[in-house]
Write a protein that binds this DNA or RNA. Structure first.
Length: 457
RNA sequence: GUGAGCGUAGUGUAAUGGUUAGCACAAGAACCUGUGGAGUUCUUAGCGGGGGUUCGAAUCCCCUCGCUCACCCCA
């Protein structure tokens, strides 16, 4: 073929292709997931179901009541609650102005909302403490990374209206038990931040200690030094660790009442044999925390806490928050669990859960049979039999294949002949043995074979 | 927000700058209204997007979007 024609041809083809592509795109414009968002697909739901079932059961057993607050709140709630200076509020909030000109934000965490609800609905008039649990999506506009999405789910507890250390211990015990029940060994890191008075006192001590060594700190710690000196303590940078190696610990500077509180919490934990690690470097990022704070890490023999270990959950006491939001002085304490992080840990540990499998598959041949099957399916389902079908399929072979894939114990087969005789074939999928049963007795027969009680007793 | 790596059907992958982008699995259909773990045949579906270099780009360059990872921060 002469070159020219060929070139012409291929060019033409290319143009046609591009045109087709372009018009397809213009027409279809396939929508895409927003950055940092994830679909939770059917195959993953078993993890979510398990975790939530366990969490909700535990929460109810412990006397917690569910609360759901809106996903959007006034931006000022989080500014006042979580803290102006915190990164969460400063740069990680999904904020926008709504059609009414209101400054609103997608909630980055739950505690501020729960505290708001506590005040707004006068929950201080209820018997104290008020014990609440919540579950739902939260939003932070940060760069996605492993264990960090822009929309993520938390389950959490809040106990409002009591200052006793036993509350903190209860919450930590709950956390420990919860992780254990879903199959994760954890390690609780615990510390006390003291009240405002002791914290301010400690800050001074810390600054004095750091001052001469300031230049040895990493660059981000240099700025932390000014903004939030406590944060220098949990920097992962090697050189900062060296500087803070012998740093005075906050627990040594607690006032008597805070010290007592902390000791009590630890005593309670000893009593219920919850293992914990005192971590004087633990500092939490939200402004409202005071006294007891803790984070829950996966317990791993090999990898030390060093780097990259993400907390599976965390919490602490927040005695000032309710007042800061305009309520009366209300001591409170809470915890939040990061569901995605838990799931990825479960997957990593290859902790798998069996999905609930259907027990009976119903196969049909012909329109009459299909009609009948619709009825039988419903009859059996009402009796609590886990059913499956592919009523939309034709051909027995395909249907049996389907039944096989689903892993059912028995398949019911209904064709023209069975319709005429008013019978059903029951096929044992393990050995292929079939039996013809009277259509009227089918419910009874199936239940018998599945070892279900007959109800008639 | 900063930095690094990566983008080929639903998934996993292949293609010294060179014809029509190939393979496997999955999915759907037919063989086949009468018996599953199988086969055969067929079908659907892809170079993230945009520009540039070139006679010619999945391949090279730029931009952008997205993913992954780290930093920051946090669940």
């Amino acid at each position: 073929m002469p070159k020219k024609t060929k070139d012409k041809k291929s060019k033409l083809k290319k143009i046609i292709r591009q045109k087709a592509k372009k018009s397809k795109r213009e027409v279809l414009k396939i929508p895409q997931l927003l950055r940092g968002m994830k679909d939770i697909l059917p195959e993953d739901q078993k993890y979510w179901d398990l975790i939530l079932d366990k969490a909700i059961k535990l929460a109810k057993d412990n006397g917690f009541k569910k609360i759901e607050t809106p996903i959007i709140e006034e931006t000022s709630l989080f500014k006042r609650g979580v803290g102006m200076e915190t990164d969460i509020v400063e740069k990680e909030m999904f904020s926008f102005i709504d059609q009414g000109g209101e400054k609103v934000s997608l909630r980055p965490e739950a505690t501020a909302s729960v505290a708001r609800a506590y005040i707004e609905h006068g929950m201080f008039n209820l018997p104290q403490p008020v014990k609440l649990y919540y579950y739902g999506p939260f939003f932070r506009y940060n760069r996605p990374q492993s264990g960090r999405q822009r929309q993520f789910y938390q389950f959490g507890l809040e106990v409002l209206g009591n200052a006793l250390p036993v509350i903190d211990a209860q919450i930590i015990l709950f956390s420990y038990v919860f992780y254990k029940e879903i199959g994760l060994e954890t390690e609780i890191n615990i510390n006390s931040l003291g009240c405002n008075t002791c914290r301010e006192r400690y800050k001074k001590v810390l600054l004095n200690y750091l001052k001469p060594k300031k230049n040895f700190l990493c660059s981000s710690c240099q700025s932390r030094y000014l903004k939030n000196p406590l944060r220098v303590l949990d920097c992962k940078e090697e050189k900062c660790h060296e500087v803070t190696f012998k740093v005075p610990q906050i627990v040594d500077y607690l006032c008597d009442s805070c010290k007592n509180h902390f000791i009590k919490v630890l005593e309670y934990l000893d009593e219920v044999e919850v293992p914990y690690v005192l971590n004087s470097r633990l500092v939490r990022g939200l402004d409202y925390y005071c006294r007891t704070i803790f984070e829950i890490f996966p317990k791993s023999a090999e990898e030390k806490e060093s780097s990259g270990q993400l907390a599976l959950g965390g919490g602490g006491r927040y005695d000032y928050l309710v007042k800061m939001l305009g309520g009366r002085e209300t001591a409170a304490s809470g915890v939040a669990f990061g569901i995605e992080r838990i799931i990825s840990k479960l997957k990593e540990k290859e902790i798998v859960f069996e999905e609930i499998k259907p027990q009976i598959f119903i196969a049909q041949l012909g329109e009459e049979a299909r009609k009948k099957c619709l009825k039988i399916f419903e009859d059996l389902r009402k009796e609590g039999v886990l059913m499956s079908e592919s009523l939309s399929k034709e051909g027995l072979r395909g249907q049996l294949e389907m039944a096989d894939k689903l892993g059912v114990k028995f398949t019911l087969i209904l064709g023209q002949e069975e319709i005429l005789n008013e019978t059903v074939i029951i096929r044992d999928m393990e050995n292929g043995v079939q039996e013809v049963v009277d259509l009227k007795k089918i419910v009874k027969e199936v239940k018998k074979r599945l070892g279900m009680s007959n109800g008639a007793a």
